[in-house]
Amino acid sequence: MNLTVNGKPSTVDGAESLNVTELLSALKVAQAEYVTVELNGEVLEREAFDATTVKDGDAVEFLY
Rank of each mutant, 00 (worst) to 15 (best):
M1K: 03
M1H: 04
M1Y: 05
M1L: 11
M1A: 03
M1V: 07
N2K: 14
N2G: 06
N2V: 12
N2R: 15
N2E: 07
L3R: 00
L3I: 14
L3Y: 03
T4R: 09
T4D: 03
T4G: 04
T4E: 04
V5C: 06
N6H: 04
N6Q: 05
N6Y: 02
G7L: 03
G7V: 02
K8T: 08
K8L: 10
K8A: 08
K8N: 08
K8W: 10
P9I: 09
P9C: 11
P9W: 12
P9Q: 08
S10N: 09
S10W: 15
S10L: 15
S10G: 07
T11G: 06
T11W: 15
V12K: 02
V12Y: 08
V12E: 01
V12P: 03
V12L: 11
D13T: 14
G14T: 09
G14V: 09
G14C: 11
A15M: 11
A15D: 06
E16S: 14
E16I: 14
S17N: 09
L18I: 09
L18T: 04
L18Q: 03
L18G: 02
L18N: 01
N19D: 03
N19V: 05
N19P: 04
N19Y: 06
N19Q: 04
N19G: 03
N19A: 05
N19F: 07
N19I: 04
V20M: 10
V20W: 03
V20D: 00
V20S: 02
V20L: 07
T21H: 08
T21I: 07
T21L: 09
T21Q: 06
E22V: 05
E22M: 11
E22L: 08
E22N: 08
E22W: 06
L23N: 00
L23K: 00
L23I: 04
L23C: 04
L23E: 00
L23D: 00
L23F: 04
L23M: 05
L23P: 01
L24A: 02
L24E: 01
L24I: 09
S25Q: 13
S25M: 13
S25T: 12
S25A: 14
S25Y: 12
A26D: 01
A26S: 06
A26G: 04
L27D: 00
L27P: 00
K28H: 11
K28Q: 09
K28D: 07
K28P: 02
V29Q: 04
V29R: 02
V29Y: 06
V29S: 03
A30R: 11
A30N: 10
Q31W: 15
Q31R: 12
Q31A: 12
Q31H: 15
Q31Y: 14
Q31L: 13
A32G: 08
A32R: 10
A32K: 10
A32V: 12
A32T: 11
A32H: 10
E33T: 08
E33W: 13
E33F: 10
E33K: 09
Y34C: 14
Y34F: 12
V35W: 07
V35C: 08
V35S: 04
T36A: 07
T36R: 10
T36N: 06
V37C: 04
V37W: 01
V37Y: 03
V37A: 02
V37T: 01
E38L: 15
E38G: 07
E38Q: 15
E38N: 13
L39C: 04
N40F: 02
G41T: 02
G41V: 02
G41H: 05
G41M: 04
G41D: 03
G41W: 04
G41Q: 04
E42Y: 11
E42L: 13
E42Q: 13
E42K: 14
V43Y: 07
V43G: 05
V43T: 09
V43C: 09
L44C: 06
L44I: 15
L44W: 03
L44A: 02
E45R: 13
E45T: 10
E45N: 12
R46M: 06
R46V: 05
E47Y: 10
E47K: 10
E47W: 14
A48I: 07
A48E: 09
F49P: 01
F49L: 04
F49W: 15
D50F: 07
D50I: 07
D50P: 07
A51W: 14
A51Y: 15
A51D: 10
T52A: 06
T52D: 01
T53C: 14
T53A: 09
T53E: 10
V54S: 02
V54G: 01
V54T: 02
V54L: 10
K55M: 08
K55L: 06
K55S: 07
K55P: 01
D56I: 05
D56R: 05
D56Q: 07
D56G: 07
D56L: 04
D56M: 06
G57H: 05
G57Q: 04
G57V: 01
G57E: 03
G57M: 04
G57F: 03
D58K: 00
D58N: 02
D58S: 04
D58F: 04
D58G: 01
A59Q: 13
A59S: 14
A59C: 13
A59L: 10
V60P: 04
V60Y: 05
V60K: 00
E61Y: 14
E61L: 12
E61T: 14
E61R: 15
F62T: 04
F62M: 06
F62P: 03
F62Q: 02
F62Y: 07
F62L: 12
F62V: 11
L63F: 15
L63Y: 15
L63K: 14
L63P: 04
Y64D: 07
Y64C: 11
Y64P: 07
Y64G: 07
Y64H: 09
